[in-house]
Design a binder for these strands. Structure first.
Length: 478
DNA sequence: TCATGTTTATAAGAGT
DNA sequence: ACTCTTATAAACATGA
């Protein structure tokens, strides 16, 4: 099958989008000046778009994903379903910032990535992280942990589960010296985003369980850690207790509180290769050329830190509106907050596991809507309706290029459909005790965590996109 | 003994 | 220059 490169996809999508929505024609050069926090959500949102496709063949077994799925899995570099191979991430992880979207073996030429989007300065290449032991996945350890937690489908996971998932999905770590496990443990211990759940006394087994600390749920956006570096003005401008509160956490230094959920999920742009093997290990993060590409891709994917936006809004720092299509952001949140009144709760990490793979988690009827999730840091309860900035306001409505519209537009038109978050997040399972799976109920986690399907692994993160309409599907524009 | 978990130290890339 | 963030290494403790 033909494999489309990123520019190909973008261009085709753009063309078809504009054909369908000529009113959305804006100058492509006016990309949104997203700050760094807005450049790191991508892969999972993309992932969500794809995996949210209700018609996507679900039985894509190992090695036989649907074409689209395959493309995106490859494209996103995320360990996909089952044995599908992880491959180049789309600058999702911080560590991926500035990295080539593809690395490794060339796939397609991208020669017809034409005018509209002059990206992809170098031939796209692709890395199959699942089978390529040479390339270190550009995900931070925190992100890896996070992925493993998501993939496990359990509210809490053991260390070995995390190990197993990582080794299963990233060949690099299968062959790497085990020091990376030390780093994983180090991350779990130091990063306050991760919370240890002690094993019950009468429960056999070793070690405790780990989960995302709900207190930091708002730092966990769409399945990845977000840790944007706040500007000084942001700090000073934030006088609401909410904003201040959370920022006070955020600004905790790594050395004073390395734990302060300082991980961005998107990993740092770190090469930092051990001398002993730096010559053989190539981390796919080092193409300055493609940093721009990555940013563009971010925009293309409409990735931004919604929680940060939301936070900004609530803290009265509306400067963000100048940088973001707030409607997009808010819509993306599924944000008519009335949803809480339905007893259905939203969450930052979306998670409508629409395909009903929630057998295990149906026990968890914890109530996390957006407010709940961020209750620790945001004390006001404001209807999102009040926050809507009329997107007829030319000053505030950001000029989106068609690529950006890829995502934002469907939010504009369909955010009302994104209000349903049927599935409680398993990542922040601070539900009433009786609702929590007892540790011993952790079902064969080692065996189960590995061979995940796309949906199983990441349905959790589909929150914003779980109810995509057919027209919303990317492939319909390709 | 080994797996797990905590803590300290250090290095380095990148942002401010 | 300084700070933040992440990676890496290592010492040490604990418990099965």
């Amino acid at each position: 099958m033909p494999v489309l490169t990123s520019p190909d996809i973008a261009n085709k999508f753009k063309e078809r989008w504009l054909a369908a929505y000529p009113e959305d024609h804006v100058t492509g050069s006016e990309s949104v000046p997203l700050d760094d926090s807005l450049t790191s959500l991508h892969w999972l949102q993309n992932f969500s778009i794809l995996s949210a496709d209700p018609e996507r063949p679900s039985g894509t077994g190992p090695g036989c994903p649907s074409s689209q799925q395959h493309f995106f899995i490859k494209r996103l570099g995320f360990p996909g379903p089952g044995t599908d191979s992880p491959s180049s991430p789309p600058a999702g992880d911080t560590a991926a910032t500035g990295m080539p979207l593809y690395l490794g073996s060339p796939v397609t030429s991208g020669s017809d990535s034409t005018a509209a989007i002059p990206i992809q300065p170098s031939p796209p290449v692709e890395v199959d992280y699942k089978t390529n032991p040479k390339v270190k996945p550009p995900y931070s350890y925190a992100s890896l942990i996070c992925m493993a937690m998501q993939a496990s489908k359990q509210p809490k996971v053991t260390l070995s589960t995390i190990y197993n998932w990582i080794t299963e999905n990233f060949c690099y770590y299968r062959h790497a010296e085990p020091s990376w496990q030390n780093s994983i443990r180090h991350n779990l211990s130091l990063n306050k985003c991760f919370k240890k759940v002690p094993r019950q006394k009468d429960e056999p087994g070793k070690g405790g369980f780990w989960q995302i600390d709900p207190q930091y749920a708002d730092m966990f956006v769409n399945g990845i850690f977000k840790r944007r570096r706040m500007s000084a003005s942001h700090y000073s401008n934030s006088n609401s207790s909410s904003g201040t509160h959370r920022q006070s956490k955020l600004v905790q230094g790594y050395h004073t509180a390395q734990n302060g959920c300082t991980y961005q999920g998107m990993g740092g742009k770190r090469k930092h290769l051990p001398l002993k093997n730096s010559n053989k290990v190539m981390r796919a993060t080092e193409s300055p050329l493609l940093a721009t590409e990555a940013n563009k891709a971010d925009i293309l994917r409409g990735d931004f830190d919604l929680s940060s936006v939301f936070d900004d809004v609530l803290s009265g720092n509306c400067s963000t509106f100048e940088d973001l299509d707030i409607n997009t952001a808010l819509s993306s949140l599924g944000c008519e907050m009335e949803l809480s009144g339905q007893g259905r709760q939203g969450r930052w990490c979306g998670g409508a596991d629409i395909m009903g793979q929630s057998q295990h988690m149906n026990l968890h009827h914890q109530s996390y809507n957006y407010m709940d999730l961020s209750a620790a840091s945001m004390e006001c309860t404001i209807s999102m309706g009040e926050l809507h900035v009329p997107h007829t306001d030319p000053q505030q409505q950001q000029q989106l290029d068609p690529d950006h519209l890829l995502q934002s537009h469907h939010h504009h038109h369909h955010h009302h459909q994104l209000q349903h978050f049927d599935e409680p997040s398993m990542l922040f399972p601070e539900q009433p005790e009786e609702a929590i799976l007892q540790p011993w109920e952790e079902i064969k986690e080692e065996a189960q965590a590995i061979p995940l399907t796309l949906d199983q692994g990441f349905g959790l993160c589909e929150g914003f996109f779980t109810e995509m309409q057919p027209w919303e599907r990317v492939e319909s524009y390709l």
